[in-house]
């Protein structure tokens, strides 16, 4: 279970990727997702360049996945927001107009 690979120091970039990734999900914050993705990619490339000196591939990948999930969630939230902003005024207009039309169509006595 304990191999030499496990004893290598974890690159700080991988730890930062993980921290930013968790924070981006907790606070639903795009500005935190971007550093998570950047740190994750940098950590992965550093580990690939010097696999005998540093470890932390798992943490880097976790940070990357959470960063990308946050970005996708942000984009979906934006799309949902735009759709809501476009449809709600139309729905309100329709609801406000309905009784008036009914009155016009059905004059009292």
């Amino acid at each position: 279970m304990n191999t030499v690979q496990d004893q290598l120091p974890i690159t700080p970039l991988a730890i930062w990727a993980l921290i930013f990734g968790i924070a981006s999900l907790v606070f639903c914050c795009l500005p935190l997702a971007i550093p998570a993705i950047i740190c994750g990619h940098l950590a992965r490339s550093r580990i690939e360049q010097t696999p005998e000196a540093v470890s932390g591939r798992g943490m880097a990948m976790a940070g990357l996945i959470m960063g990308y999930v946050s970005v996708v969630a942000f984009i979906l939230a934006c799309i949902l927001g735009i759709i809501t902003a476009l449809t709600i005024p139309a729905v309100i207009k329709l609801r406000d107009g309905t009784p008036r039309n009914e009155c016009r169509e059905n004059p009292v006595q």
Partner: peptide
Amino acid sequence: VFKGFDYFLQSF
């Protein structure tokens, strides 16, 4: 407990 990240992909 963070040692689990050494097995990140497979455990995920």
